[in-house]
Design a protein around this nucleic acid. Sequence first.
RNA 1: GCUUCCGUAGCUCAACUGGAUAGAGUGUAGGCCUCCGGAGCCUAAGGUUGUGGGUUCGACUCCCGCCGGGAGCACCA
Length: 596
Amino acid sequence: MPMKIEQALTSLVIQAIRSLYNSTVESKSIVFQKTNAEYEGDLTIVVFPFLKISKKSPEVTAKEIGAYLQANSPEVEHFSVVKGFLNLVISGQYWFDYFTKVAENTGYAFVPVTDSSPTVMLEYSSPNTNKPLHLGHIRNNLLGYSVAEILKVNGNKVIKANLVNDRGIHICKSMLAWKKWGNGETPESAGIKGDHLVGKYYVEFDKNLKSQISNLKSQGLSEEEAEKKAPFMLEVQEMLRKWEAGDAEVVGLWKMMNSWVYKGFDETYKMLGVDFDKMYYESDTYLLGKKMIDEGLSKNVFNRGADGSVFIDLTPDGLDKKILLRSDGTSVYMTQDMGTAVERFKEFPELSKLIYTVGNEQDYHFKVLFLVLKKLGYKWAESCYHLSYGMVELPEGKMKSREGKVVDADDLIKEMIDTARETTMELGKTEGLELHEAEKLYHAIGLGALKYFILKVDPKKKMLFNPKESIDFNGHTGPFVQYTYARIQSVLRKGGSVVGSRLSVVGINRKEKNLIKIIYDFPGVVQDAGREYNPGVIANYVYELSKEYNQFYHDITILKEENADLRNFRLALSAKVAEVIRSGMNLLGIEVPEKM
RNA sequence: GCUUCCGUAGCUCAACUGGAUAGAGUGUAGGCCUCCGGAGCCUAAGGUUGUGGGUUCGACUCCCGCCGGGAGCACCA
């Protein structure tokens, strides 16, 4: 990657200040920003921080520094001053040279992974096996996958992990309902995906339990008592005990129903295009944390209550007391998470970061988890990070899975693809496409729209999904970017290939310069996205690039340009834009079609 | 009640981490296919950034107080 012009200018500004005002400034205080479109210029230096040193007005200071830069840097063509802002015009030659240097280098924005690169484990997805995936899971999956890809191109080895919540009382609920009312129904016999079938029995259980509870309440029991004494509740608890004791029949049922669910999940994962390097199952790991109870007690980090329960008192840290072992000796979620974290650093001692992709409703949980690990003396505790994301809300409010107010993942994916198919046909773009190619295209567009819609939003913020309005293919959307890519491919097919490093052009126009400047920004954007764990940075960037290209395409002739050098340059520029769009979209897990 | 996150155009989202007159899309009203793909391009209207103070050359951004909303609050996961 060529050196950034900002670096060279920074040291020049330091020189300027030394020579003009006989003083030194830190490079940190020299901030560059893009020049506003309404003024002439490429880069702007804010001179307010230097006024104390120069003891002159903002205008004079800016002019003096500007003159120095112009005199000492061939890249600074000229400059102008507006109030305290020094606007620098960087020569077209510089931008053109930059372009020829990166034109042939597809990885110019990426940090390569080597043997000595740090290893990061990123956990995401982590579903429960008692119901199918919904829109909330989709955000988790897309976010996790994308951040993993972004970390890779920032020079990290990434292990994508999925910890499946495959045991516990909620799983037993589906099992019990199926046993009672299922009549041996299977995904095959019912013609339903396995995860949906199991989910159906989960709902069934809940319904029947509720009617039992309301019966008991009408007999005069309180809500709390009724919940505890409902026969179905007692039965399901008994089932969980049997499962933990290894009862052959219960375990057999559990295995069968879970295998249905996994098959269903695999289909959904495949449609979403997400994958994992490492699968963990809670049935293997849920006992891990128990060992740490003694460790914590002997280190006086944990306390034992009179009833035998174990807890940690975090009130000195501004948090609460947190139970870690129930009075009956069983462990809670927190304990399990402690155990699995320790286990992972044992399994992968080279881990430099452990990232959990989990919704922000668990912010407190992870705050406590990391603090407990730190108090136990694990120095890697500070390398743990909660990639917290906001909830997806519907126009009518939060999704409630128990009330059936959810957007089912499989339904939504299908709807996106159907809409892509309809739109493509309406626009008459299916000509000359084989059927299976067409279907691949609808998938790319439908999923592209969905993924882009979700990933363009800052993960930290909650987002609204309106099923009627959110499926849009125009404007600031995935298909807009895909369309721009396909359009460029069409130009390149007609224009032939050119060697970007052997170009010569006398001058570049404003639109060309704008495009090169955006291409120039890509490395920094990739870095920002990685530092912030935010795919939205990439999404907004590829949109900006696409928009600029479409203007260029509209205003500037490419194929019919008579000057061969200019024509070649514009073809090479188009090819580079397409390549950056493709690599950016791939970081979001979105495919770009050659035609659409 | 305590802790915590959030309020930006009618709607959905940005704003380079404290910098210029807060930007896009969508929707609304208009315009652009004799030119490489109209899923595109251009123009217009649309804002006291919830609100009141403070910090400073400068605040959507930092601090404090209100108003409104979400989430979490030891033996659920």
